[in-house]
Structure formats: C-alpha cells, structure tokens
Design a binder for these strands. Structure first.
Lengths: 400, 400
DNA sequence: TGGCTTAGTTCGAGACGTGATTTAACCTGT
DNA sequence: ACAGGTTAAATCACGTCTCGAACTAAGCCA
C-alpha cells in the first residue's frame, strides 16, 4: 500500500524497456512495428528503447520479413547467448546444477550424489559451491545469477532461510552460507515452485494466467500461479495441497494431523496402503520409484488378489486426487490444473480417466467446464530449469 | 503480459497522484512531510501534486501540527464531502440502497422489500432504478458511481452479467438493464466479495495484505483477498469455500455433489441436520434465522435430549468449519481468516473455541501460528457499504 | 526510372520529477 | 520586541521521458 514501482521518468523508461524486453523474450522474433501495436507505445519510443537494447547487445536483429510493397520489417530477438544463468535442483537423492543460456537452453551440468541419502546441510553447501565453481568456469557469457530449488519452505528475512521439515533442515540460512563461496546473485525458492515456473514458461502452463500445479512425488505439494506469478501466501507457505483434509479422522499424516491428502496420494502413502492391504513383505524394496512401479505393474497384469489390491489402492488414489482437484477448482477457479512430479506422471496414465470423472462429479459445473486438467509437459526433472528462470525473470523485470 | 499501467509521463503523474491520494485516504490526515517520507517522492513533487489535488478540491487542509522550533506542518485530508457513492445490497429478502460520502459515512438509505421472497429480475431492476433516483435526488455532491452486491457469480463480458443459481438468475445482463435508468458508472460484484471489501477497508481485515473471509449465511461462501485485492480466479468464481469436499460420499449438497462443506455448515444445513436428529417437526419455522436461533438456545439451556442433539449438531458444525479453516490455512497461508455472515456471527460465540481447536489440529504448525482466526467486525449488513467501496476504489486508483 | 507503400528514425514540443535554492512560519532566548 | 535558529513548503532551473509529425530508408510495381 505504500510504494509501488514507478515514480520518476527513469523508472518509467525502465518499465517500458522491461515491457519490450519481456515481449521479445516470450513472443519470439518481432518487428518494431509489432511491438508498437502490442505494447501501445509510440513508434518513436519503441525505436528509441530498442536502440538502447541493441547497443547493450541484449537484443539483436534477426532477419527480416518479406514486404508487400513497402520497406520490409526487421525482426528483433533477445540474444540468448548474451547472458547465462545457473539452476540448482537440491533433491532428496542428488543435487543437480545446470547451466543455461538466456533462452534456457542447457549448456552444461554437474551432478552431485547425496551421500547416504541424507541432505546434511554441512555437505550440501560445499557441494553446491563446488558445482558452481565448475559451471561458472565453463561459462561463455556473464552469469546473471543462480536459482536454487530446495525441498522446503523458503523465507526471506532478508536472506533466504530454508525450513525443510522432511529433510531435517531447521532454519538453514542457505543464502548466507553460499554467499561465502560466490558473488553471483542468489535466488532460493521451493523446488515445487521452481518446477511450476518452468512449466509456466515452457511447458503445460504456457499462456495461462492462473494455474495450479500438483506435484506428486514421495509426498504431495502444489504451486499456485495467480496472474502469471507464483502465489506465496503471507509467509511463503501457500500451496500445501497435500495437507488439505481428505477425511476427518482418517490416516495419520507425517505432519501429525489426521486425514491429510498426502496420507493417501503420495508414493509413500500409496505404497504404505498397498502393504497394509496385502502384507508388508510383498513390496520388498526401499526405493519408492521401484515400489510404485511394481504396484502399477501388478494392477496392469495380475488377475489375482495382488492385482485386485493394487487396482483398489490405485482407484482410491485416483478418487482422492480427483476430489483434491475439485477442491482446487471450486476454491481457486484456475484456468488449468497440471499434474506433475515423478509419481504423478508415473500413475497418471492409469488414473487420469478416473481422476477426471471424480473431479467433475465434485466440482461446480461452470468453473470445471472452463478448467483443463492435464499433465506436466517437462517431465519430473524441470526443477533446475525452473530455478534458472528466477535470475532470468529478475533480469527481464528490471529491464536489464 | 502485454500492457501494464504506466507508459508516458501523464500516466506517471496519475500513478503518483493516486499513490498520494490513497495514502491520505487510508492513513488519515498527513502532512506533506509525512507524504514525502512514506512515498519516496521528492518534496517538490509532493507539493506539486498536492497543489493539484487541492485545486480540484479533493484534498483540503486540516489544521496543523504544533512544531518544535520550526514551521508547523499543515495536515492534509481527503474532503469526504466532495463526492458521494451509492452501494446496493441485493439480498434474498430485500434490496437495500445506501448513499455514502467519500469516507463511507452513511448519508441516506432506501429499503425495497422483495415481494414474495422472490428475486424476479423484472422487478429487481425497476426497484433498484427507483431507489437510485431517490438517493441521487438527495445527493449533496457528485456521485462517483453505484456499487451493487448481488448473490451470484458476476462475469464482465464486457458488461456485468449475473449468474445466480440459488435465486434463479441465468445470465442476467444487470448492467445493461440498469444502464437504461442511470448514467452513473456501475460496478457489479458478488455480495460476499463486497462485504469482504468493506471488512478490508474498515473492519477486521484492516491492514492485512492477504485474508480469507468466510461467509456463513444460509449457505457458505468465501472471498479471498490476495495482495490487498479480491482474487476472482480465471472466471470470477474463485472462493467457493462451501463446496470444498468435507467428506467423500457424504451429505448431498444443493450443488449436486456429495459431501460439500456447505451441506454441513450453512444455516440451512445445520437446521436440516438437527431436524434429522430429532424429527422434522421440532423446528417448526421456515425462517432460518429463527430456526438457527432456537437450536443455539436449546444447546445453551436444555439439558435433555433436544439439547444433546443441538450440542451434537453444533459440535459437528464447529469441527467442519475448523477443518475447512485448516484447509484454507494450509493451502493459501493467509494472514487472517475472518468469519462473517449472519449465521457465522450467530454461531461463533458458541463454536469459536472448538473451531480454533480443530483448525489448529489440522493445520501445519508454522502457517497456523502466523494466522489469526477472528470474527468480522462490521456485522452482517456490510454488503452495501462494501459495494460502495467499488466506485471509491476506482476513484482512488485512477487518481481522480 | 519514377511513383507508391510501409518501416523506422529524427526532431521539436510538452510534461514530469528532482535537487538546490528560496520563502514561509514558527520557536527560543535575550 | 527582535535576532537567530529551525523546520515546512514553494519555486526554479535542469535533465529525462514519451509523443506526434515530419522525414528518411528500403522495398515493390509498372
């Protein structure tokens, strides 16, 4: 309510510059004419600002469009090679760093396994620092910054602090710790949100103004996009879809409450429910990906009791997800609901029809009819790419 | 993603003008000095813009603050008498129009009973038009516009069209119909949202950036405030809290789905559940307000079976509301959750402790600890006042 | 080659915000 | 009563911005 954006003429210029830059970035090569029409700026100003951007080597000319009688239009595009950005995916089993150009094309990557499956903060920071050093050494252009997707809630006070209950991170001051190893701007955010950001820019969310991304992995999370930007809530913990209550007094959730959706639909929960149904020894692996795969396979090929149990467990999973989607549709009325995460993508082929059916039955007619429920397009590994969008987004917003 | 706000220097001025005006409006009399400090503008610009506003007679000087050695600061305030606004509450039993000054002090009102309890569109439009004529005739200052809160979903395409399934309005082009009777700018929105807006400006939401207002009347709705503005979703139907699923396969809701929260917590549902528990004849009134009152009284004073049933029904209501609040807290992480609506305010004194208890038990620890759950401060009749904020908000945003 | 059409640039005008300077309005101490 | 000090507000000169109009560039066609 106090201060918002533009005040003086320089800010005005920066805003217009950012507007043109964003448009060129997201809507491909465009002529000055098209920029004039879509932004509402005068042709004089467009010429002026574009000249700035060209001089700064951020925008380059990219051929021209054949004319029908007049001077041909010169196309402009953002020079993707002008800057680079680094994205980091801090996962539960590995840390992956990727280097991208401005257009988010991957230029290099480093994988660091997490020893013993434990994300010890003392080991994570040096691992990231080492990876950063390796990647920046290979950079062909200035690096705008480093985006880091972490499993947990990120608060800025004012430097990013991570609260990750599932991985035992208690108020880890990640930004300050990394600050000792690099001068690059750091952008830390929740991994689910960075993944959603990647889908918004390049995947299933492209073009939507509002969308909800459901991330089914070991557990269940979500990221809510409102007006094209992630909604964080008052303390950045919005989007805990997995802890919507699915059944009063139901299964105990690892958060301590009873009946959370996550106690039914994440890979961990699906496996646990299957074990309860058929006896603990049947799925004899600790690898959730493998365990979930076996249940899916049994449901597909086994005509006996083990297959019946698998089908039953998966059907309830679809029902719970469907109701959870209906809740999202009724309460937030998004343009799209997008299912992602490795477990979600693995189960979706089998469950999607049932999910649609249940979601429809529990949704209000009008909003559901205008919402599409679909799968993520970038696969389960979009966290690092989404993280790299953070410095790029800052670059575009600031107008360079 | 295309065009947003400021482009040229005139827009810049308008934005700064709006910023100062908003600040003066919401933060009471302020000196130019204080404006300089809180807005970040230079003192030259503040003087300049304020001179404009004074010349337009929107802002007036309002005494001065004693100095400690220097020239005293002259206080400025928005002249509440300079403009007026009209708010309309289209309720299920009556239509109420109120006339306000710029500071939203009530200056006059007209009540139109709805004949036979039926909101016939053919009768509503002339009724509103007649009320408007009466109120504008009494206006002492130019009327900025008319805000109208209606029970139903409002879509702008581009003129306001109301879809009200509960009252049998099917795509009623209310704005166009009223346009034939008045030249005043019209602002139509859902009544729950206008009520929430009133609470945000003058009631329990004051100062919050994000809040969720739960409106318990005959049914159950909500209005979600994000970044100080109502969130409408992609097709303006966001906030259907009453249709979150409370129990899979549960009670049939009037929306057609099973297990909606509204089938448990609205006045209609509470009365129905009580009747089921004790026999249909016990609450022998069609007036929901009276019926709910009797149940509350029985719970309070009757030690026998009728009281037990009332207590049991009300306890389950508290549990359902509590879980519903936990869902909101987990998913949206608002600063505040505010319970309003006539039924909500009537039940709250008895239910609030239990609601808090259940909400806490089903919420994630961190977000719940930072969220306050409280009651609306403006009572059940804030719809018209909230509606009147719509033209005022437009006035403030545009910078007059 | 000359006219026509469209794209992009240049230029002068008008509007704005800012820092520095000036004026206004009050207080304190003598 | 009056000078000196202090703070608030207004004024001024300057630089920056966008815009419309005029102008130049670069193609087509006959």
């Amino acid at each position: 309510m106090t201060d918002e954006g533009r005040r003086n003429v320089r800010d005005l210029r920066r805003g217009n510059r950012a507007m043109l830059l964003r448009r060129l970035y997201f809507h491909g090569p465009l002529s000055r004419q098209e920029l004039v029409q879509t932004t509402g700026l005068s042709s004089a100003s467009v010429s002026n600002v574009v000249a700035d951007l060209i001089e700064a080597k951020i925008v380059v000319e990219a051929g021209s469009v054949e004319s029908d009688g007049g001077r041909p239009r010169i196309l402009l595009r953002v020079d993707a090679a002008r800057f680079e950005a680094i994205g980091v995916d801090v996962g539960e089993t590995r840390i992956r760093l990727e280097r991208f150009d401005l257009g988010l094309r991957e230029l290099g990557s480093v994988d660091v396994p997490v020893l013993g499956g434990q994300l010890d903060p003392k080991a994570v920071v040096p691992a990231i620092a080492a990876g950063l050093a390796e990647l920046t050494a290979g950079a062909q252009a200035p690096v705008l910054g480093v985006g880091i997707g972490v499993p947990g809630t990120v608060q800025h006070q004012p430097y990013a602090v991570v609260h990750g209950q599932t991985i035992g991170w208690d108020a880890l001051p990640l930004e300050e710790l990394l600050r000792e190893h690099t001068e690059l701007p750091l952008f830390v955010d929740n991994g689910a949100r960075t993944m959603a950001q990647a889908e918004m820019w390049f995947g299933a969310g492209r073009g939507a103004e509002s969308a909800v991304f459901l991330l089914l992995g070991s557990g269940a999370g979500a990221s809510v996009i409102v007006d094209g930007a992630p909604f964080r809530g008052s303390t950045t913990s919005a989007g805990e879809w997995g802890h919507l209550n699915a059944e009063y007094g139901g299964r105990l959730c690892r958060c301590g409450a009873r009946g959370c959706l996550e106690a039914y639909v994440g890979a961990e929960a699906v496996i646990a429910r299957y074990r309860e149904a058929v006896g603990a020894a049947v799925i004899d692996t600790d690898d959730e990906e493998e365990g979930l795969g076996r249940i899916l396979a049994l449901a597909e090929v086994d005509a006996g009791a083990a297959g019946d149990a698998a089908r039953s467990v998966l059907d309830e999973t679809a029902v719970r997800i469907g109701v959870g989607i209906a809740n999202v549709v009724n309460f937030l009325n998004p343009q799209r609901v997008i299912i992602g995460g490795w477990a979600g993508l693995a189960m979706a082929p089998r469950l999607l029809p049932r999910i649609h059916e249940v979601a429809q039955a529990h949704s209000l007619r009008l909003p559901y009819s205008l919402t599409s429920v679909e799968l993520g397009a970038l696969g389960p590994d979009a966290v690092a790419r989404g993280a790299a969008t953070l410095p790029v987004a800052r670059f575009l917003e600031s107008g360079a």
